[in-house]
Design a protein around this nucleic acid. Structure first.
Length: 968
RNA sequence: GCCCGGGUGGUGGAAUGGCAGACACAAGGGACUUAAAAUCCCUUGACCGCAAGGUCGUGCGGGUUCGAGUCCCGCCCCGGGCACCA
C-alpha cells in the first residue's frame, strides 16, 4: 500500500512534543520579543466528545500559532475547559454519578482527542472552571462586583467604600472621591435627609447601587430544568438547552448591573476588529434609543380614591409626535394601575392583570397578532394641548423597558395604530411625509382629528396611508406657547424637548434594551456564591475564605421548591459569621455557566498563581488577546458578558486594557454531506419536489408525502434543478443539513484520524473553503487532501526503500525552480496573514504538482517547502525535516523569506482585448513598453483580423496585466 | 416586519474593476498490471463547428466604465440574528 505511515509518524511526533514540552510558553514575559496571544473559545467538554466543528477553529488557530512562532513571536496558545454545565448534573440525576466524575472523564477524552490532532497548545496552562483553584478567582471577581458601584459621573466603577463614605456624616476619604459630582451630590443629599431617616436611606442606596445586587424579579423559570434562565438563554419561549417550556415567575435573584456599562459596551465596539455582523448584534442587543421622558398628569374627578395629584411618566423616542398622543397605555404590572383604576373598571382590570401574569413568553409572542387591553376608567391630560385622553393597560407595553408606560400616537406607530383600531380610539395625524417645502399644501387638507375606521387595514388621509412612522414635517402641533409646525422631525424633537424641560414636565433621556444580567441558578453544579446571610442581610465572605467549595451530597434531586439542591443540606447551609460568630445561612444558589468563561483568557496568562488572579506584569505583556476564534453562537452571550467583566476588572485596576479581544473571527458551521431527497405519495409514485410543502404534504392535494434519501447516482442536474435520472420530470431536493444524531450525519473526527491521519483532517478542515463560511462535509474531499499529503511524502521518500529518493539532490536550483518556490512562499505567507488557509493549501498543491515533474529536486528548495507546509501538516513536516538530516523540531525554524529577485521572468504574457473582448495573447520581454506590445499585438495572428481595416482610437494599457485596443 | 451574510461548472470553491472557473472532488478516456487496488497522463461551463475558430455565460432587470462576478439602482431566492424595546 502506497500510503505514508501517518499512524506511527503522528504518534511519534506527538510524543516528542509532549516529552520536550516543545510548545511550552515561557512563564515570564520575554522582553523585546513581540507577543502573540491566540485563543480558541473555551469548549464545554460534553460527553459526546469532539465534533468536526471543533477542530475547524482549533486548526486555524494552531496553524497561525505555529506560523507566528516561526516568525519570531512569543506565542501564547492555551486550552482549557468551560466545565460547569447542566448535562453533567442531569446525568448525575439519572445515575447518581458525581458531576465532577463525569466532567473529569469528559475532559480526559477531549484532551486526548485534541492531542491526537497535534495542536501546539501549552498544556501546562490548562485550566478548568470546576477546579477550586480556578473558581476561587471567579468568586473573587464576584466579590469585586459586590463591593463596587457605578459612578455615572466618572463613568466607571468605584469601591463601595467610597459610597459608604459619602453616605456618612463625616466623610474621611473625601480626597479619594474628589472630582465625582455624583458622590458630592450623594453626600449633599444625605446631609439634607432628616437624621432619623438617614440609616434607612443609606441602606437602601447601598443595596441597590452594587454591581452585584439582589432583586425579586420575574424570571424565566424552566420547570423541566429546575432553574431560571437568562433572557439570552430563552429562545421563542423555550429553553435554549433542551427546548423546554419557560414561564414567568417572581424570585429572589442575584443580578449583575451590566446596564451600567451599556454605553461603554456600545461605543467601545468601534475600537474592535470584529465581524460587523457580531458588532451589529451586540448593538441591537444593547438597543440604545434616544428620546424624552414626559410626565402626563392624571385627570381625576375630585373623589375619594385619590387624595394626591398623580402623574404618569412615559418614555418616547418621538417627542415630536406629542400632539398626536390620543391615549396612554401602562403595562399591566405598572405600580400606578391600582391607584388610578376607577371602581367600575376594577374587576376588569384585575382580570386582565391576572391573565397577563399567567402568560408565558411564548404565549405573549404567539398572541401578538391581536392586541388586547383594558380601560382603567382614568384619564390623563396631554401636557401640550390639555386634551383629556384615556388610560389603558395592555401587555404590549413591557414593564421592564423605559418607564413601563407609553403615550400612544396611533397615527405614527404601528402598534398604537393597531390598538387604536381594535378599541376604536381616536387617531390624530401630526407628521406628514416629505421636506418642509411640501408643508403648506399638506397642511390644508389635514383634518384636526378623526375617529379610526374599524376594520380597514390602514386609514387613509388624502393620499397618505397611516400609520406613517418615518421622519417628516409636523402639522397640528401648536399650543398657545409653542409651535413645532413645519419643522422637520429632528428639529421638532429638539424644540419640543427643550420646551418640556423648561416647563419641568419632561427631559431628554436615553434608554437601553439591555437588562441587568440574571446571575443565579438553582443548581448544584456551579460556583457557590461567596455570600452568607446574617439576620437575612447578605454579607460577603472575606477573600481569604475563598474558595468556597461545593459540599458532597447524597442525591442530586432538585428541591422541588425552585431552590437549589444546596438548600436541602443543612450542614452546609448553616454556618456562622466569621466576623461575629453569629449564626448565618449560606447562599444556596450557584452561578451560571457563563461566569467561569468570562475571564478564563486572563487565567491562561498566569494559570497557577495562587496570590492573584493574574500577575499584573504578565497581564500587561500578554493582553489583549490578538486573535480570538470561535462560533458566532456566542455573539451576545459570552462575548458581551466577558466584555462587561473585563471592564469591571479594568475599573478595578486588575487589567490594563479596556477590551479583552482585539480581533475576533467566527468560523462557519460545518454541515453534513449533501443529501438528495425525493418525495413519494402513498401509492409509491414519485412527486416532484416543487409540490412538496414544508409539512411534507403535496401542496396541490394536501396528501401526505414520504421523503426518502436517494444516492447521488440516481440524480442529475437539469437546468436549475436536480431531477431523477430515470424521470426528469421529478425534481429532488439537494441540501446539506446541520449535523445531528437524529439525522445520522455526524462525522466523528476520531474516525477520520484513524483512516486518514490527523494531518489530513487538519488540512481538509482548512481546504473546504473560507474559515468564516458555512460549508458541507465531503468524505471524497478528505481523500483528495490525503492524496496530496501522499504526493508530498513521495516527493521525498522512496516507498519501497523507505529512504530518501535519489532525485533529491544537492544541486543548485534552476531559475525556474526558484521562481516556483518563491512564488509559493509569497502566496502562502500572504494567505496566512489574511487567514485564507484554503488558498494557501491550493498554492502548495500547485507547487507539488510542478515539483513532481522535476527529475532533479534540489534539496534546498524542498527543505524550504517543508517549512511552508509545517503549520498545516506538522507531523508529516517534522518527519520529513528529520529525514532530511535535521536534529530537533522545526517549530522554531525561521519562516522562509520571499526573495523578490527570484520572482522575475524574462518574458511575460499579456492578454490583448479588442473593444473589451479578449482576442489573444502576446509574449513580450518583461518590462516591454506599451508601443512594443501594441506592435506585437498587431502582428499576432489571432488578433490582427480584429484590427484589420479599423483605426485604433484608444489604447488602455495596464502594465504587466493587459492591453485593450478600442477600434472603430 | 427589521438588521446582517450569501447566490459563480455536476460538487466544494478561486479571481487588488483587467485572461471567469485556480486548486480539489466527481465524471469520461488512456498508461502501468495476469487482474484489481494504488499511482501517473489526458479531457471536462454551455452551445455551434470536421477543424481553425465563433457565440453565450457568475440569481433576475437596468446603469456606470474602454472593460463588471467585482461598483451603483431596483427586484427574486437561500442562510443567520432580532422581534410588541415605544
Amino acid at each position: 500500500m502506497a500510503v505514508y505511515p501517518f499512524h506511527t509518524l503522528e504518534k511519534k511526533w506527538q510524543q516528542y512534543w509532549a516529552d520536550r514540552q516543545t510548545f511550552r510558553t515561557p512563564d515570564e514575559p520575554v522582553p523585546g520579543k513581540p507577543k502573540y496571544y491566540i485563543l480558541d473559545m473555551f469548549p464545554y467538554p460534553s460527553g459526546a466528545g469532539l465534533h468536526v466543528g471543533h477542530p475547524e477553529g482549533y486548526t486555524a488557530t494552531d496553524i497561525l500559532a505555529r506560523y507566528k512562532r516561526m516568525r519570531g513571536f512569543n506565542v501564547l496558545h492555551p486550552m482549557g475547559w468551560d466545565a460547569f454545565g447542566l448535562p453533567a448534573e442531569q446525568y448525575a440525576l439519572e445515575t447518581g454519578t458525581h458531576p465532577r466524575v463525569t466532567t473529569e472523564r469528559n475532559i480526559a477524552r477531549f484532551r486526548q482527542q485534541l492531542q491526537s490532532l497535534g495542536f501546539s497548545y501549552d498544556w501546562t496552562r490548562e485550566v478548568a472552571t470546576t477546579d477550586p483553584k480556578y473558581f476561587r478567582w471567579t468568586q473573587w471577581i464576584f466579590l469585586k462586583l459586590y463591593n463596587s458601584f457605578y459612578d455615572p459621573d466618572l463613568n466607571r466603577a468605584l469601591p463601595m467604600a467610597l459610597l459608604e463614605d459619602a453616605l456618612s456624616d463625616q466623610p474621611r476619604r473625601r480626597e479619594d472621591w474628589a472630582g465625582s459630582a455624583y458622590l458630592d451630590g450623594t453626600h449633599a443629599g444625605y446631609l439634607q435627609t432628616p437624621p432619623e431617616q438617614r440609616m434607612a436611606a443609606r441602606a437602601g442606596l447601598l443595596r441597590h447601587m452594587r454591581l452585584a445586587y439582589q432583586a425579586e424579579v420575574a424570571v424565566n423559570w424552566c420547570p423541566a430544568l429546575g432553574t431560571v434562565l437568562a433572557n439570552e438563554e430563552v429562545i421563542d419561549g423555550k429553553s435554549e438547552r433542551g427546548g423546554h417550556p419557560v414561564i414567568r415567575r417572581p424570585m429572589r435573584q442575584w443580578m449583575l448591573k451590566i446596564t451600567a456599562y451599556a454605553e461603554r459596551l456600545l461605543v467601545d465596539l468601534d475600537t474592535l476588529d470584529w465581524p460587523d455582523s457580531i458588532k451589529e448584534m451586540q448593538r441591537n442587543w444593547i438597543g440604545k434609543s434616544e428620546g424624552a421622558e414626559v410626565d402626563f398628569p392624571v385627570s381625576l374627578k375630585p373623589s375619594a380614591f385619590s387624595p394626591q395629584p398623580l402623574s404618569i411618566r412615559v418614555f418616547t423616542t418621538r417627542p415630536d409626535t406629542l400632539f398626536g398622543a390620543t391615549y396612554m397605555v401602562l403595562s399591566p404590572e405598572h405600580a400606578l394601575v391600582d391607584q388610578i383604576t376607577t371602581p367600575e373598571q376594577r374587576a376588569a382590570i384585575k382580570a386582565y392583570q391576572e391573565a397577563a401574569a399567567r402568560k408565558s413568553d411564548l404565549e405573549r409572542t404567539e398572541l401578538q397578532k391581536t392586541k388586547t387591553g383594558c380601560f382603567t376608567g382614568a384619564y390623563a391630560l396631554n401636557p401640550v394641548n390639555g386634551e383629556k385622553i384615556p388610560i389603558w393597560i395592555a401587555d404590549y407595553v413591557l414593564a421592564t423597558y423605559g418607564t413601563g408606560a407609553i403615550m400612544a400616537v396611533p397615527a405614527h406607530d404601528e402598534r398604537d395604530f393597531e390598538f387604536a383600531r381594535t378599541f376604536n380610539l381616536p387617531i390624530v395625524e401630526v407628521i406628514v411625509p416629505g421636506g418642509s417645502a411640501a408643508v403648506p399644501a399638506a397642511l390644508a387638507g389635514v383634518p384636526s382629528a378623526s375617529k379610526a375606521a374599524g376594520g380597514t387595514s390602514a386609514a387613509t388621509r388624502g393620499t397618505r396611508v397611516l400609520p406613517f412612522t418615518g421622519d417628516g414635517v409636523n402639522v397640528n402641533s401648536a399650543n398657545a406657547e409653542i409651535s413645532i409646525n413645519g419643522l422637520p422631525t429632528p428639529e421638532a424633537k429638539q424644540k419640543i424637548t427643550a420646551w418640556l424641560a423648561g416647563k419641568g414636565i419632561g427631559q431628554a433621556k436615553v434608554n437601553y434594551k439591555l437588562r441587568d444580567w440574571l446571575f443565579s441558578r438553582q443548581r448544584y453544579w456551579g460556583e457557590p456564591f461567596p455570600v452568607i446571610f446574617v439576620d437575612g442581610q447578605p454579607q460577603p465572605l472575606p477573600a481569604d475564605a475563598l474558595p468556597l467549595e461545593l459540599p458532597e451530597v447524597a442525591t442530586y434531586t432538585l428541591s422541588g421548591t425552585g431552590e437549589s439542591p444546596l438548600a436541602t443540606i443543612p450542614a452546609w447551609l448553616n454556618t456562622t459569621d466569621p466576623a461575629t460568630g453569629r449564626p448565618a445561612v449560606r447562599e444556596s444558589n450557584t452561578m451560571p455557566q457563563w461566569a467561569g468563561s468570562c475571564w478564563y483568557y486572563l487565567r491562561f496568562i498566569d494559570a497557577h498563581n495562587d496570590r492573584a488572579l493574574v500577575d499584573p506584569a504578565k497581564e500587561k505583556y500578554w493582553m489583549p488577546v490578538d486573535l480570538y476564534v470561535g462560533g458566532a453562537e456566542h455573539a451576545v452571550l459570552h462575548l458581551l458578558y466577558a466584555r462587561f467583566w473585563h471592564k469591571v476588572l479594568y475599573d478595578a485596576g486588575v487589567v490594563s486594557t479596556q477590551e479583552p479581544f482585539q480581533r475576533l473571527v467566527n468560523q462557519g458551521m460545518i454541515l453534513g454531506e449533501v443529501e438528495y431527497t425525493a418525495f413519494y405519495d402513498e401509492s409509491g409514485a414519485p412527486v416532484s419536489a416543487e409540490f412538496a410543502g414544508d409539512d411534507h404534504r403535496d401542496t396541490r392535494t394536501m396528501a401526505k408525502l414520504v421523503a426518502e434519501r436517494i444516492e447521488e447516482e440516481f440524480v442529475e442536474k437539469q437546468g436549475d434543478f436536480f431531477v431523477l435520472r430515470e424521470n426528469s420530470a421529478i425534481r429532488v431536493t439537494a441540501r446539506a443539513f446541520k449535523m445531528s444524531k437524529s439525522r445520522g450525519n455526524v462525522i466523528n473526527p476520531d474516525d477520520v484520524v484513524r483512516d486518514y491521519g490527523a494531518d489530513t483532517l487538519r488540512l481538509y478542515e482548512m481546504f473546504m473553503g473560507p474559515l468564516e463560511q458555512v460549508k458541507p462535509w465531503s468524505m471524497k474531499g478528505v481523500e483528495g487532501v490525503h492524496r496530496f499529503l501522499n504526493r508530498v511524502w513521495r516527493l521525498f521518500v522512496d516507498d519501497r526503500a523507505d529512504a530518501l529518493l535519489p532525485e533529491l539532490v544537492a544541486v543548485a536550483p534552476t531559475r525556474d525552480q526558484l521562481r516556483w518556490l518563491h512564488r509559493t512562499i509569497q502566496d502562502v505567507t500572504a494567505d496566512l496573514d489574511t487567514l485564507r488557509f484554503n488558498t494557501a493549501i491550493s498554492t502548495m498543491m500547485e507547487f507539488v504538482n510542478e515539483c513532481q515533474r522535476w527529475t532533479q529536486r534540489p534539496r534546498a528548495v524542498l527543505e524550504t517547502f517543508v517549512l511552508l507546509l509545517s503549520p498545516f501538516a506538522p507531523h508529516l513536516a517534522e518527519e520529513l525535516w528529520q529525514r532530511l538530516g535535521h536534529a530537533g523540531t522545526l517549530a522554531y525554524e525561521p519562516w522562509p523569506a520571499c526573495d523578490a529577485a527570484c520572482l522575475v521572468q524574462d518574458t511575460m504574457e499579456i492578454p490583448v482585448q479588442v473593444n473589451g473582448k479578449l482576442r489573444g495573447k502576446v509574449t513580450v520581454p518583461t518590462g516591454a513598453a506599451q508601443a512594443e506590445i501594441v506592435a506585437a499585438a498587431q502582428a499576432e495572428a489571432a488578433i490582427a483580423p480584429h484590427l484589420a481595416g479599423k483605426t485604433i482610437r484608444k489604447q488602455i494599457f495596464v502594465p504587466g496585466r493587459l492591453l485593450n485596443l478600442v477600434v472603430g
